[in-house]
């Protein structure tokens, strides 16, 4: 049974590297700022986004992360980004001049921008998950003021997703062993399996709540603090945040964008 923690990408958090050794709170804050900065660019920004790939490439290299699972994961979630941007070329046909004499519909530019932002933001989140224990990310989010029910949900989801998947697999196996060679699930079987999973999940949630209550749970899932930030963490944070903001607001980057988009 595969679990969240044994996922081929996420399991990399146990490695040792300069990136893995950084403080989880600092990494989470830097990643959040990275995402906010990338998302904040104007609709048609394409060239100004490109320098941000350097950060992603550098972190992947320093953390010695496998590229293939990272790309595979991006491809798996890419339909969401494609769905968001796929109608832009149809709806936005205003021409934009790329270079002298060469123009394309603005929709294509905004669509490209969406894809670049998707790769940057989801890539940064995946890199964070692959270099940081998930509960430390949750602790950082809680410290940053994310509501405690949401953090508790994330923690319990990471713990019990594998259990739920295991139960679903067991149900499917039991069904297939009695299917007498019939292929496919069929709507009745599918509905029965989903209903059974739902009931089991509710029952398990009840038992987990009882176990938590018996150990004094009062609504707050308290976590042990990680090690405090060191000088290297502050240097990393300062360099990264400074670079992200400089690239975002530097006139040179806008000039680059204007040149490339005419």
């Amino acid at each position: 049974m595969r679990s969240f923690a044994s996922d081929e990408l996420v399991a990399n958090w146990q490695k040792r590297s300069p990136i893995h050794g950084l403080n989880a709170g600092v990494k989470t804050a830097v990643t959040l700022l990275f995402i906010v900065v990338v998302v904040s660019f104007p609709k048609y920004a394409v060239a100004p986004l490109c320098p941000y790939f350097f950060y992603l490439a550098l972190v992947v290299a320093l953390a010695d992360l496998p590229v293939r699972p990272l790309v595979r994961r991006l491809v798996v979630v890419s339909p969401f980004a494609l769905l968001v941007g796929v109608f832009n070329p149809v709806l936005d046909r205003d021409p934009m001049e790329l270079t002298a004499g060469l123009a394309i519909a603005g929709g294509w530019v905004s669509f490209t921008s969406i894809i670049l932002r998707f790769v940057l933001t989801v890539g940064a989140a995946l890199v964070l998950a692959a270099t940081t224990p998930f509960h430390r990310i949750c602790a950082s989010l809680r410290s940053a003021g994310v509501p405690r029910p949401l953090v508790a949900q994330l923690l319990l989801l990471s713990r019990y997703l594998a259990v739920l998947v295991g139960e679903a697999r067991a149900l499917l196996r039991a069904r297939s062993l009695r299917s007498a060679g019939n292929r496919g699930l069929g709507p009745r079987s599918a509905a029965a399996i989903v209903a059974t999973l739902f009931i089991r999940t509710v029952e398990r949630a009840q038992r987990i709540f009882e176990a938590m209550s018996a150990r004094g749970f009062d609504g707050e899932l308290r976590l042990l603090p990680g090690p405090p930030p060191r000088a290297a963490d502050w240097v990393f944070a300062t360099v990264c945040c400074g670079s992200f903001l400089a690239l975002r607001f530097s006139p040179a980057v806008y000039w680059l964008g204007r040149v490339s988009l005419g």
Binding site: R207, I208, A211, R215, F217, D218, R222, L224
Partner: peptide
């Protein structure tokens, strides 16, 4: 069911859960 009892992300976090709540 130990799966219900061990709800925290690591063993150390789990065994520290009760003392923190105390």
């Amino acid at each position: 069911d130990a799966e219900d009892q061990l709800f925290m992300p690591t063993l150390l976090e789990d065994v520290s859960f009760g003392p923190l709540n105390q």
